[in-house]
Computed example of a mutant assay.
Amino acid sequence: MGVFDIGDRSVGPTEPTFVIAEAGSNHNGDLGTAKELIDVAVEAGADAVKFQTFRASDMYVEDSGGVEYLDDDRSIYDVIESMEMPYEWIPELHDYCRDRDIYFMSTPFDERSAAELAEYVPAWKVASYTSSHHPFLRHLAETDKPIVMSTGAHDLDEVGESVATLRDAGATELALLQCVAAYPTPLEEINVRVIQTLREEFDVPAGLSDHTLDPVTAPSAAVALGASVVEKHFTLDKTMDGPDHQFALEPDELDAMVTAIRDTERVLGSDEKSVLDVETELYDIARRRIHATADIEAGDQFTEDNIGVLRSGQRSKGLHPKFYDELLGETAARLVSKDEGISWDDVAN
């Protein structure tokens, strides 16, 4: 499975999780708000902050009707049109991110938006609803940028077709994200285990694009299952006007998510089982050894009445407990005082 780079950050199963703070369209058409969102992502410790770049005319048919989940009387076309990010923001937001030491990303939904972004993003993020747009996937693959693709509202066979399309078009650096296209997604529907399925089925780094309201549970579970990328929407304030604010994290929640991800990485640690330096003290005093439970004279036999398997504390350490049965019936070579650890030197012959 290939590890690839987004900027100077390596992305893959053996690397720290690449955290994308998804600002989306929560700038509400205000450049100052967009920069505030970048500041929040920086403070939280995200690796990248991501917006969305689209034009309604390239996304929806004009007479598109409404969408119930948005709770908005306008048509979905009008809603999307009101959320468009001006192209002229792109270089300014890129430079602002560069100065704040965070990667600028934005999801393109059409070829002309991709053309506006190409100079400024280190990787492409493909939205779930675009992941079966094969002509557009081929267009992105030909740019030789890494691609991170969400898979919401598509089954495994459809994901496979999209992966094949990307690979046939030359894409070699690809990560897939488990995603559920429900806003918000109930915890019991997020199906984090799909991360393993995507990784094993397509031999690529996999991760999670999470729309649950909980800032910690799904991202932490994803990292525990080996997520290489975690993405989650955030906002300055859930009560702001706009369709994507209510299911997004507020700044303190985004901070909690990144902290939980890094803490999860720390507790996962190494897969090598060994005695650690932090265990040394208790290794010495708390592991059980064979000790005399009564004074044993030279020539006496070791019996269940005069030896036992006990913790040594600060006393000399006896034989490993695995030798207990072997020691029974043997003869003491010298006086062994109560509580002493019994060694092979204490055994006659």
Results as ranks from 00 to 15, higher is better:
R262M: 07
L319P: 04
S337K: 14
A164I: 05
F302S: 10
V3G: 03
E116H: 00
V61C: 10
D241N: 04
V40Y: 00
T165K: 08
S128K: 04
T259E: 13
S312V: 14
V192W: 07
P16K: 14
W344F: 10
H291V: 15
V121K: 03
G29H: 00
A227F: 11
S113K: 02
V275W: 12
L93H: 00
T293G: 10
E92N: 00
E189Q: 08
E88K: 00
D5K: 12
T14F: 10
V223I: 09
P91R: 00
Y96G: 04
S131M: 12
G207N: 08
F323Q: 08
D78E: 15
S220E: 13
D39I: 00
F51V: 10
D144H: 06
V19T: 06
K232V: 06
S220Q: 14
M149V: 07
D99Y: 01
D210G: 13
R311A: 15
I195A: 05
P135L: 06
E142H: 03
G7P: 02
W89M: 00
F54I: 08
S162H: 08
H211N: 08
D210P: 12
M83V: 03
D295G: 11
P16Y: 08
I147S: 06
T33P: 00
G318F: 09
G226D: 04
M257S: 04
A298V: 11
Y60D: 09
A286Y: 15
S337M: 07
A169S: 09
E330T: 12
L137D: 05
A44L: 05
G2T: 15
T264G: 07
I261R: 05
L93F: 02
L70F: 15
H211R: 10
K273R: 13
V11N: 04
